[in-house]
Amino acid sequence: MKKEYICIACPVGCHLVLEEKSKDDIKVTGNRCSRGESYAREEYSEPKRTVTATCSADNGRIPVKTNRPILKEHIDSLLKEIYSINIDTLVERGDVIIKNYADTGVDVVATGSSAGKIKS
């Protein structure tokens, strides 16, 4: 099993090659520093991303984000859930919108407040 990645740890953008000979024998080459190695290993075994989106609110959109990176395989269903929500109360920055999504331990939090956006 061989996989190629471009490292995003810094602007150099090393071309990394990860080779898995067996479960305990995974080798990363092409990296100029140790950050490249850990990046390739994480991208290979459990790639994660921070997801940002907006929820609909009574008057306008509320920006939200996951409070930590979430496994890529959850992203599509998470987005569907975020888009299905309509916020009809006042929300402050940091308020939790979805708690512990699909038992991943990841919360979705508001990154903006709805002050002035909600009709009285």
Binding site: T50, T52, P63, K65, R93, T111, G112, S113
Partner: peptide, 10 residues
């Protein structure tokens, strides 16, 4: 820390 744009502005 890594923030979104609205958080930085906020």
């Amino acid at each position: 820390e890594e923030l979104s744009g609205p958080e930085y502005a906020g």
